[in-house]
Design a protein around this nucleic acid. Structure first.
Lengths: 223, 223
DNA sequence: CGATTAATCTAATGATTGTTAGAATAATCG
DNA sequence: CGATTATTCTAACAATCATTAGATTAATCG
């Protein structure tokens, strides 16, 4: 009853579905987003995603089976990373697709941006030019190791945890554009709240390094 | 114990995971690929994917819930289509990702291309130029309605089913480049087999209209 | 070497899924 | 109108999945 070629076709679609399966779990997506910022150990991943180490390990195993991440032992720890930036592009694409289509997600996003004027609206290239001319201070509030792995050009690193104690490094005159891990991350929002309370002109930018890179814009690495 | 913002974060990732879920089933992926060729009824989709109408309907319901497809009643039939070309881009991306990483898929693909010289190797822009100058005959072997919905520029439509009886339309001198629904489709392969047996110089091209469009290349519509 | 830390494997659970069959809608045709 | 065709809904099954706890492996440190 089956046409010839059906078995091989089934096999082909099944293989692609393995990738789909890997990105069908919220926790796995969160792990991918964290790994977009750079290499992380299982412990760090579990802490960032607020799940147990066991569960993180199980999810990472699946991501590894789908060849989206790879593991590397470093002493006592096992460090995971994305196999390449195409995986980050997939995450960006899935998020954009969901954001455009799913009303529930749009509603939740609106809660993350209480006042719309808090969001930095200009495009990547324009920001780059403004930052180069020193018209704005681009602030990376992620942990220092993520800044070192990759960050926006001209961005200054002050991790959120240190921001309060390093406030004197932020000039009061210049407008500040803060960014973090991406649209779903709350760190830049908190930073902007703190900065505006302390008399700075600060806005949040939604993009993270993954979104920035998938737009074809350049990134910097190191200190 | 939970940090503030955890609930909303869970909600956000869950919404994106709905898209992932939708593309985690081989049958749903096959339906998406078929819908990349144009609008289809449930019956047509079920026949093309070689599944029951009931099962097709159930899968389409899930795709609709994830807002990847939309339905439109047309008389007795319900016609489904992709909500927009971004969904086709997602399919192309997933397939490319799987093909690069999963060895099982690479092995299966090799069976589809028994002799490597059967594959047309030049890029899209170059093919376009060759076709424009009339150096090659670009042959679309998909059903006529899919050709009408969208096809490669300068392509000639001869559905696989009619190819045998319309062989006289294919010149013996000019090289033929046949394409169908994409890398997983067997129609172009069959066409090339038939044509070479009948003394034509024919090769298969892996891309379909979805791959072509996601590369930013132009398509034509209508007769 | 034994103790400690980090991560994985195994087994068990309750929940979800894919698939099928049968009943129910929705539009058309005579 | 009743009969037909196309599709969806409901209920049910076995199969698969996510998650947790307990045992196990791998590397380091004293």
């Amino acid at each position: 009853m089956n046409k010839p070629g059906r078995e091989i076709k089934n096999l082909l679609y099944e293989q692609v579905a393995r990738i789909g399966k890997a990105v069908s779990s919220p926790k796995r997506l969160e792990l991918i987003e964290i790994l977009c910022q750079g290499e992380k150990t299982v412990e760090e991943l579990a802490a960032a995603a607020e799940i147990s180490v066991k569960l993180a390990s199980a999810h990472l195993k699946e991501l590894k089976a789908a060849r989206l991440v790879e593991a590397r032992r470093e002493g006592k720890n096992v460090a995971y990373r994305l196999v390449d930036t195409q995986v980050a592009d997939l995450w960006v694409m899935l998020r954009a697709l969901a954001e455009e289509r799913l009303l529930e997600l749009q509603a939740a996003m609106r809660e993350l941006v209480s006042r719309p004027e808090e969001l930095y609206a200009v495009g990547g290239k324009q920001l780059l030019a403004q930052a180069k001319r020193g018209e704005v201070l681009v602030l990376d509030v992620r942990p220092a190791d993520e800044y070192e792995a990759a960050h926006l050009p001209y961005a200054r690193s002050i991790p959120l945890a240190e921001l309060k104690s390093r406030l004197d490094e932020i000039p009061t005159g210049k407008p500040v554009v803060a960014y973090c891990r991406g649209p779903f991350c709350l760190m830049a929002r908190e930073a902007v709240d703190l900065l505006t309370r302390r008399g700075r002109r600060a806005v949040r930018m939604e993009v993270g390094v993954a979104e920035w890179r998938s737009q074809g814009l350049p990134l910097a690495t190191g200190e």
